[in-house]
């Protein structure tokens, strides 16, 4: 009953990007290396390459998002693809159409690729299982499960600033329980050979047996940040106060918010990351977010190159041929 990894085709090449879990390091590195070649493109005056000319990419956002949808759109356009944005939260679903009906209808419009964001864990897997074999699915975030392109752009950023994954101590801080970003980061970091990944959170925001994912669990920032090279902050959703997960934003900030004082506990050259959008004064202090150790804005820039890389690899284009 254990199925083949649904993201890979019979030859082991990437067919869909659904999660970083189970992807071989070679594929993760292929994406990062390809993204390197696109960083140059995004810095040029003419920011387009013709790799995906004539391809139709549908952004299917069943859950609102500005940043992720925009960066996917920019990435697709820079590859010369046609981009169709669908904000499905307010259209078909409210008329009672099922997820797969929506996808089948769009497939009939000759889609080549779906970029999917959905509030339910497993939505991207479900779509990937039922689309025509020539359609590729990119998971742009499903419930609390996975957000692989975010994790890949994080890996890209880490490699840019810290080079060798095998010498790093990385801490992921915040609401691990509900975070698709954290799960995807953990799998990517462990696959790329980071020897020590820590998660730091109160017990109400940690999933059961999280240590089985290969992380060390800390509840105390003072201990958890010692000797850390990379701090990956997570967004804290305001609704977590309602579900008896936390008493207040103030108490959370006091014990788990990243301030300059707490950052000083990490290595002096540590970098600070955040997937955005940030809650200043809740999980991160402005002095840190805007400080010299912050790489939060470069993350956003690299996000475009990484998404271009994923799309071009899925479309099976030879990168070397496309960029002269």
């Amino acid at each position: 009953m254990i199925n083949r990894n649904p993201q890979l085709d019979a030859q082991g090449a990437l067919q869909h990007l659904l999660t970083t879990e189970g992807l071989p390091a070679a594929i993760l590195l292929q994406i990062l290396d390809t993204a390197e070649s696109f960083v140059g493109v995004t810095e040029r005056d003419v920011k387009k390459v013709p790799l995906l000319r004539g391809k139709s990419i549908f952004n299917l956002f069943f859950e609102p998002s500005t940043r992720t949808r925009t960066t996917f759109e920019i990435a697709a356009k820079r590859l010369s693809a046609d981009v169709i944005n669908l904000n499905i939260a307010v259209s078909a679903q409210s008329k009672g159409e099922t997820l797969l009906d929506t996808v089948n209808n769009l497939s009939a419009m000759n889609a080549d690729m779906f970029v999917v964001r959905h509030s339910q864990s497993g939505a991207a897997h479900l779509i990937a299982k039922h689309v025509r074999p020539d359609i590729h699915v990119i998971n742009a975030g499903d419930g609390s499960h996975a957000h692989p392109t975010q994790a890949l752009l994080d890996m890209f950023t880490i490699r840019r600033y810290k080079q060798d994954f095998r010498k790093l101590r990385v801490a992921i801080i915040g609401d691990i329980l509900h975070s698709r970003v954290a799960r995807s980061q953990i799998h990517a970091l462990t696959t790329l050979g980071v020897p020590e990944v820590r998660v730091i959170a109160p017990k109400t925001l940690l999933p059961k047996m999280v240590e089985r994912l290969g992380v060390h669990v800390y509840h105390d920032m003072t201990k958890g940040l010692k000797d850390i090279d990379v701090l990956m902050m997570l967004r804290l959703q305001k609704e977590r106060m309602q579900g008896a997960n936390l008493p207040s934003q103030e108490e959370y900030f006091k014990y788990y918010g990243l301030t300059s004082e707490k950052l000083a506990l990490a290595r002096h050259d540590a970098i600070v990351m955040h997937p955005g959008p940030m809650n200043r004064g809740v999980e991160i202090d402005s002095a840190v977010a805007d400080g010299k150790q912050s790489v939060i804005l470069p993350q956003v820039t690299f996000g475009i190159a990484v998404r271009m890389a994923v799309m071009s690899i899925l479309a099976g284009q030879s990168v070397a041929k496309g960029i002269e």
């Binding site: 864990s121 419930g143 609390s144 499960h145 059961k208 089985r212």
Partner: peptide, 8 residues
Amino acid sequence: EVATRLGL
């Protein structure tokens, strides 16, 4: 562990 991995 499974629900933790799958985010369920």
